[in-house]
């Protein structure tokens, strides 16, 4: 079994398996990644780091492309 990773998404604890990207983890919680400039909820589109729809705040840093980042133990993710 792959190792389990614990991280916080929007203030709640979640567990995921190793090798999961943050974008996938956010989608698994059924949350949107970001709110667009006119207030629409958005989730990932391209899944390969091109479209920037999966941006979220990772460990306090905004505008992170979460589809290109793996979940790590203790990570704090907030949708933006």
């Amino acid at each position: 079994m792959p190792e389990r990773i614990a991280l916080t998404i929007n203030g709640r604890q979640w567990e995921t398996s190793e090798g999961t990207t943050i974008a996938a983890a956010i989608m698994n919680t059924e949350a949107a990644c970001r709110t667009s400039v006119t207030g629409e909820e958005r989730g990932p589109l391209c899944g390969m780091g091109i479209c920037f729809e999966c941006r979220a705040i990772v460990n306090g840093v905004p505008h992170q492309r979460t589809c290109q980042m793996l979940c790590q133990d203790g990570m704090d993710v907030t949708t933006q």
């Binding site: 995921t16 090798g19 974008a23 983890a25 989608m27 698994n28 899944g47």
Partner: peptide
């Protein structure tokens, strides 16, 4: 597909 490959 990419998202499923990465844990969705």
């Amino acid at each position: 597909q990419a998202l499923v490959k990465s844990g969705l």
